[in-house]
Design a protein around this nucleic acid. Sequence first.
DNA 1: TTATTAAGTTACTTTTGGTAAGTCAAAGAT
DNA 2: ATCTTTGACTTACCAAAAGTAACTTAATAA
Lengths: 121, 121
Amino acid sequence: MKKNIKKFSRSPQCPIRNVLDRFGDKWSILVILVLGENGTMRFNEINKTIGDVSQKMLTVTLRTLEADGLVARQVFPEIPPRVEYQLTHLGMSLMPHIHSLTTWADQNINEIKTSREKFMV
Amino acid sequence: MKKNIKKFSRSPQCPIRNVLDRFGDKWSILVILVLGENGTMRFNEINKTIGDVSQKMLTVTLRTLEADGLVARQVFPEIPPRVEYQLTHLGMSLMPHIHSLTTWADQNINEIKTSREKFMV
DNA sequence: TTATTAAGTTACTTTTGGTAAGTCAAAGAT
DNA sequence: ATCTTTGACTTACCAAAAGTAACTTAATAA
């Protein structure tokens, strides 16, 4: 009796890989979370809120999220420049699921930390 | 009137960053998903199921998940060796939340793809 | 005239991940 | 009796992703 294994190979046909590959970077989920919690924000505001993201990677991450239709970018023709970011409808629809992840994180971080310490020995 | 911005700086005190930082690598979420869907699996079985993960990174990812207490590793003293992996109770408790993400992915991949194409122009 | 400001970009360095070959010990093939 | 195969890794080396710090731009303030 052979196991019927569900595959998750990278391919244009696998929606899960399509999305996980995109979020499997260092900053995407966090940027969505920050915009979801705080609403409309300017570039430097996001930067300070996260604290340890580089300007370069914040730019790249926001552009990618914009391309995916998760984040809207509005440029005001002023000097010094002003650029505002916010979640689109699609981006907001992702929030509950990210929230569900962070709630789990809150509840289970202690068990994870304990496990990490034990493992080190 | 000043906005009251929720911060998500990296620090031992922020459980969300603690967990997101760990999953912000290329393979962790996918490996959990694969084990969650298929139950107990051997190393090469996981490797084939994903398809494009390198042996090296699968080893590293599994060790990290083991250290976090999300995955259990059982070695059978045979030759050639046999090593079985499965989610722990903690790992399984994460599954519904990952599932919630992948369901969203399934439902919204078309809108994302459309958006990506438009952005390229 | 010079400094400041916000949102970037660029050149360069470091970290993370991929590739391909090597290891180990027993069982099966030649 | 030696040679190959097997599964789960390591290791040395190479490529890709992310970090760092300096530079850009144009209006306003000092």
